[in-house]
């Protein structure tokens, strides 16, 4: 890549005035560095994954509403986590976390267990308990 080809597209970074450093060659073929504001293929890739997350969050929300899963699933998706990441934040086995996805099991959870989830999601126990998916 030549220095004058370093992409300066509108990107997710340009919104917050961040620029990334890239290596490129100057007119004599010598390597130098240049700042880039963004690159379209990356911007599209990132917005693709953000759309994917939003879709997952919306689906989890409707599942909570229909009583198919517990609010834990909703907050897990909201925080871009999967079962493995959540399990390591709450320091429980994955299968135990999965059990807590069931609304029936969730209702019977003690505040001690719930507080671990609440801490992972940065909310209070009552916010987790009383989450209404409307």
């Amino acid at each position: 890549m030549k220095k004058n080809e370093v992409p300066q597209d509108e990107g997710n970074l340009s919104k917050s005035n961040m620029k990334e450093l890239m290596y490129a060659t100057d007119e004599n073929g010598e390597y130098t560095t240049a700042l880039s504001t963004g690159w379209e293929p990356k911007t599209i890739a990132l917005s693709n994954s953000i759309d994917d997350i939003n879709e997952r969050v919306a689906e989890a929300k409707s599942q909570v509403k229909n009583g198919e899963v517990s609010p834990i699933v909703y907050f897990m998706e909201l925080h871009k986590m999967d079962v493995g990441i959540l399990a390591s934040y709450v320091e429980m086995w994955k299968w135990r976390v999965k059990k807590h996805f069931k609304p029936k099991v969730f209702k019977g959870l003690s505040d001690t267990v719930l507080s671990r989830y609440a801490k992972a999601f940065n909310i209070s126990v009552s916010e987790l308990k009383n989450f209404k998916a409307d």
């Binding site: 690159w39 293929p41 990356k42 890739a45 990132l46 693709n48 994954s49």
Partner: peptide, 9 residues
Amino acid sequence: AQMVRMQEE
């Protein structure tokens, strides 16, 4: 998309 993200992020 994930592959491109990991590749160029």
